[in-house]
């Protein structure tokens, strides 16, 4: 699924966050958005996810999804946004209830999350919570994957494992990823790096 953003503007009061932004994100492409803080990267992602409405401009999702309905979005937010009283497994199954449990368990194992599998999210470390949030987004059924600084707070070794996992999952998918690290963008195999 391709995404064509045309002349998107967004202001909060007097402050203009996005000024006439136009982007063309090709189908099955990994696009990385970069730029200094306050340039409106997160706002743009929120508009794409349907959480904010642009003041002006249009978003065209190409031929819509395969089923002809609105595209299914999956997102890794800047925050983990996990249900703190639910286990890692339940948090994942909350957004993908129909996925085979073995698939979830294999993914959990690949990201070294077995220790926290049945623990409430509030008892997990920051890095584990981040990995659960990433896994939740990757395993859900989506047309477009949006990731807002997904590797924030992960140590280098874990980051490498998680990035390999993400790379394997987003091949042949439309992904839009925000990062401040150009090296991350290259490791993710981004075909399109856009500076905001």
């Amino acid at each position: 699924m391709s995404i064509i953003l045309s002349n998107i503007t967004k202001s909060y009061g007097d402050q203009m966050v996005l000024n006439n932004i136009s982007l063309d994100i090709a189908r099955t492409e990994t696009t990385v958005l970069m730029g200094k803080s306050g340039r409106g990267k997160t706002t743009l992602l929120r508009i794409l996810a349907g959480l904010e409405v642009a003041d002006t401009g249009t978003i065209d999702f190409g031929l819509k999804s395969d089923t002809g309905t609105s595209p299914k979005i999956s997102m890794v937010f800047q925050e983990d946004r996990l249900c703190e009283n639910l286990s890692a497994l339940t948090n994942i199954r909350l957004v993908c209830p129909h996925i085979d449990k073995d698939v979830v368990l294999r993914a959990i194992d690949a990201l070294d999350l077995c220790d926290g599998l049945h623990k409430p999210a509030r008892e997990l470390s920051g890095g584990m919570k981040r990995r659960v949030a990433i896994l939740r987004a990757l395993l859900s059924d989506y047309d477009i994957l949006i990731m807002d600084e997904p590797f924030k707070g992960l140590d280098e070794d874990t980051k490498r494992i998680v990035m390999d996992f993400v790379c394997a999952h987003i091949q042949e998918k439309t992904a839009l990823i925000v990062t401040h690290d150009r090296r991350e963008a290259e490791m993710l195999g981004a075909t399109n790096i856009i500076e905001l």
Binding site: G50, E79, C83
Partner: peptide, 24 residues
Amino acid sequence: TQLLEMSQVFRIGISRKIRYIYLS
């Protein structure tokens, strides 16, 4: 509201939203 936004993005149904988000 962050959890509600998450449920909106992931298209979580009302019954699951009540059970897992609102209830707690």
